[in-house]
């Protein structure tokens, strides 16, 4: 039975629950915009990291480098698109 619930999976799950609760702080408490966004950014990216490394086994095969490069590249593209669009439409409009 214990075999069916390996420790690092359980830990990952608990960790993700904790992160969710931490993120909830931004609606429960009256934080400044910067502080709240910082919390959200950190918890969200950590959650993504947990899934990627612990659950998705991104680093287990011989294609590890390709897979990580691939994900990092696309996160770069995502950030460029989002920030660029915000720059054009909100920050410098």
């Amino acid at each position: 039975m214990a075999q069916l619930f390996p420790k690092h999976h359980v830990m990952g799950f608990i960790f993700s629950l904790v992160l969710t609760v931490v993120a909830m702080a931004v609606v429960v408490y009256d934080l400044s915009y910067t502080a709240a966004m910082a919390i959200l950014l950190i918890t969200a990216f950590m959650q993504a990291g947990v899934q990627l490394v612990m659950f998705m086994h991104a680093g287990e095969s011989e294609d590890k480098v390709t897979i990580y490069t691939n994900v990092i590249y696309m996160v770069f593209f995502a950030i460029v698109t989002i920030l660029g669009t915000l720059l054009l439409f909100i920050w410098d409009m």
């Binding site: 994900v71 590249y73 696309m74 996160v75 593209f77 995502a78």
Partner: peptide, 8 residues
């Protein structure tokens, strides 16, 4: 990765 771009 392509899906990341889509949601981005």
């Amino acid at each position: 990765a392509a899906e990341i771009a889509l949601f981005a």
